[in-house]
Simulated assay, not measured.
Amino acid sequence: MRIRPVATVVAGALMGLSALVLSTNAAQASPHGHTPVTVAHRGASSYAPENTLAAIDAAAELGIEWVENDVQRTKDGELVILHDNSLARTTNVKKVFPDRSPWNVADFTLKEIEKLDAGSWFGQKFEGERVPTLEDYMDEVEHNDQNLLMELKSPELYPGIEMQTLRELRRGGWLDRDHLKHRLIIQSFNADTLKTVHTLRPDIKTGFLGNPSVADLPKYAKYCDQINPVHTAVTPEYVAAVHGLKGPHRRQLDLYTWTVDDPAVAIKLADLDVDGIITNKPDVVQDALENRHKNGA
């Protein structure tokens, strides 16, 4: 059983109040009537090893409601949370399995992956942190009363991962009305994957990772609720083009942008009226956005 820090529990209890205060301040101070959502990239990945339970907890302790993660599949068909296709960068797999290069997730069973240390590379205090399963990850997000921007990573490597992920989400209680409306978004760089998710569960919010041409945006609006480009591709014209369309749920398309750690850049993007900012330093970005409103920007 995972023992969670007291601070995490306290943070979770205060999240609702924090969200209310932030939204009230935003409505009063923002020229656009809102402040962008701050999303912790792979958890609070500047402060804890990415895509681990520790990273979710670190985000919770900072008062961050939204976390982002990456879903992949093991050799024996289990869903796990890892960004790279290979285990080499963020675990000690080279030491434990030296003859298994290139150490791809798809070449290891869950039992083998559970033997790996996914925290020591980041810092000694995280020694023993594991690659979480999707089930364990969702349990921790739920425990912290957080919300999830879930990326299906390299789905072309894992046929059927869309349906499998939806089954896992349903078992975990994440496909009820509250989660679907307020707490879950599925994104991917793979448009066909998003089409599949939308076909299987048209009530789920979806986001395309990338910056399609303005001319192509109406095609994406048929099955995407968000267009999520890298921040260097965001211009006033592009934001206006995205916001000028309605998605499959007949609501204005959102634009979440990544990966922004510089507070000045975050403020600039907020002034362009983006809807979300994905960041490794969610406290830095959130503080910058709050100060922007306090200063009457």
Rank of each mutant, 00 (worst) to 15 (best):
N104A: 07
S86A: 04
G12I: 06
A88I: 13
L116G: 01
K111S: 15
V67R: 02
N92L: 15
E114W: 14
V21T: 07
L20F: 09
A7S: 05
L20W: 14
S86K: 01
P98C: 14
V39H: 02
N85M: 13
L87W: 03
R89T: 03
S101R: 02
T109P: 12
A59R: 04
R73S: 03
H83N: 13
V71C: 04
A54D: 11
W66Y: 05
K75V: 05
L53E: 12
I64A: 06
P31I: 00
L87H: 01
A11D: 03
L87R: 02
P31D: 07
G119V: 09
L82M: 11
V80N: 01
V80M: 04
S101Y: 10
A106P: 02
L79C: 06
L20I: 03
I56T: 08
S18L: 08
A40C: 01
V37L: 11
G77A: 14
E61S: 06
I113K: 05
L110F: 15
L87S: 01
E114V: 14
G33S: 11
M15I: 08
A26E: 05
S23M: 13
H41Y: 13
V105Q: 07
N51H: 12
L116W: 05
K94Y: 13
G16V: 06
N104G: 09
T38D: 11
G16W: 10
A11S: 11
H83I: 06
S45K: 07
T74A: 05
